[in-house]
Design a binder for these strands. Structure first.
Lengths: 168, 168
DNA sequence: GTCTATACCCGGATAGAC
DNA sequence: GTCTATCCGGGTATAGAC
């Protein structure tokens, strides 16, 4: 059910997530949804949690399978690349989960911390550095998603410049 | 007129910007607005242009009046501080102008470049570095606006860490 | 858990008089 | 440039039967 909502958002954008559309996608009628969710906000919370869990998983995998390579010469570079790839794999979901306040009390216990942990570890628990890198990655992703960079801008270069600078 | 729209957005958020609300704010009726704007999107474009022009001005001023100080030991630090202050001075407007595609063809000629120029100059026209710094600043601002950092997080420290690292 | 029917609200936008 | 009157669409959500 949440999966259908996710598909809807990814295919057609956040605005397309309406109770009617979600119901149709499921082959049922809109009022039936209210037997499963108290209201629309509850659906959105589920999606945010799902997105956050996915980010956490992407980070954990990048951490676990890290091997030096030309693309990712360091662990931080690998995490950054994984973050970017994950976000761009479902930009609408990323925006839904990210452009708005985080409904912390409604989220699974510890999820937020879990998503942050791999980066924090890679920074030797330097919170300032971790936040700076997070902000950089988030900024790059959202600017890219919204087409804010000039056409044909070399984003790979900007990523490399940012990661290498923030690394030390 | 655009000023009224701006006030509405800043006070009550993007969602509060409706043709009815804008009209009421101006002491007229909604249909009258359509003698001034073809549609709602045109109002939003004006706001985006206004926000961008303000950012440009903030950057230019920071550049012009830059003096070494404890808070801003370098020009880049001063620009970053000005960017942050400008965005946080009207967060809703910043989000409106920033969370969505840029309507480039409807913007005043050269405005986008003008806004980018001071940072680019401060980077000696290293586009990769400029983009990385811009992404960092934008990320910090949006994460802060949306309350994404943990409560009580030391954002000043994160700003300092990011700016000093990205500076070289 | 699903349906039909429907209430309710609020948005953008137009027609046409003044 | 402003008004009144109005249309139209689309959203969330509830009531109550099956």
């Amino acid at each position: 059910m949440v999966e259908a909502a996710r598909a809807l958002v990814e295919e057609s954008g956040i605005a397309a997530l309406t109770m009617r559309a979600l119901a149709e996608h499921l082959g049922i009628k809109a009022p039936s949804l209210y037997k499963h969710f108290p209201d629309k906000a509850a659906v959105e919370v589920e999606l945010i949690a799902l997105s956050l869990a996915e980010t956490a998983r992407a980070m954990e995998e990048a951490e676990e399978h890290f091997e030096r390579s030309a693309d990712a010469p360091t662990l931080l570079a690998a995490l950054a690349a994984a973050y970017r790839a994950d976000a761009l794999a479902h930009p609408h979901l990323y925006c839904l989960a990210t452009e708005g306040p985080l409904p912390r009390h409604a989220l699974p216990e510890g999820l937020e911390e879990r998503a942050a942990l791999p980066l924090l570890r890679a920074c030797d628990f330097d919170a300032d550095q971790a936040r700076a890198i997070w902000a950089f990655a988030h900024g790059m992703v959202t600017l890219e998603i919204h087409g804010r960079f000039p056409d044909g801008a070399d984003l790979t270069g900007a990523w490399r410049a940012g990661v290498t600078a923030l690394e030390r």
